[in-house]
């Protein structure tokens, strides 16, 4: 085993679950989380020689996110869907925004585990990703800012809005109402 491979296995691969979890929460069909993660790990390995010292997890998750974005834009381009203005990259895909949900459909037979997953999946991606990084990966505001490429203030406001939406929709779900997504 080469030195680089040994280093990579020791430093980067322990964060493979984190990479996969992020991919799973970002990715929708026709994209595949496994593909995104494999591509990201390959790119990470290829550029590992130039990676020095800093924290590996945010670096790897940044690559995962970028791989997702690239693939996402490719699929949108193929479908002829115009991309949003890149000044602040948001991924508000019309397909992701659910309209008025049938109240019966949401309340009937969903256990709370799937309910919350569903609610998080419905959130606009810019809220979803900061919530995943904060709540599931325990990243600091600074780390999230680096991974997503936004100012810390934006991290804070997105977290606040995302959490409020999640809570709001959770209660609305219990009452059979339609969801607020932004």
């Amino acid at each position: 085993m080469t030195d680089r491979r040994r280093r990579f296995e020791a430093q980067a691969l322990p964060h493979l679950d984190a990479a996969y979890n992020l991919a799973r929460w970002l990715v929708r069909p026709p994209l595949d989380a496994d593909d995104i993660v494999q591509d990201a790990v390959l790119r990470a390995y290829q550029s590992f020689d130039s990676f020095r010292g800093e924290d590996v997890k945010p670096w790897l998750l940044t690559i995962v996110r970028n791989c997702f974005l690239t693939a996402f834009k490719q699929t949108k381009r193929k479908e002829g869907v115009p991309l949003p203005d890149d000044s602040e990259i948001t991924l508000v895909d019309p397909a992701l925004i659910v309209g008025d949900l049938d109240p019966e459909a949401t309340v009937i037979q969903m256990d709370s585990h799937r309910e919350l997953s569903g609610l998080l999946s419905e959130l606009a991606p810019e809220f979803r990703e900061v919530l995943v990084l904060r709540e599931m990966e325990d990243m600091s505001y600074g780390e999230i800012a680096r991974v997503v490429g936004i100012p810390i203030g934006t991290v804070m406001s997105r977290l606040a809005r995302g959490r409020a939406l999640l809570k709001e929709n959770w209660h609305l779900n219990a009452q059979g109402g339609s969801h607020v997504l932004q």
Binding site: D34, V37, E135, M136, K167
Partner: peptide
Amino acid sequence: ELIRRDLPYHRAGTALREDI
């Protein structure tokens, strides 16, 4: 609390690990 209780943390499966 809700998130901790109800959100699944997805882990890379053995097939993906082998592929990698």
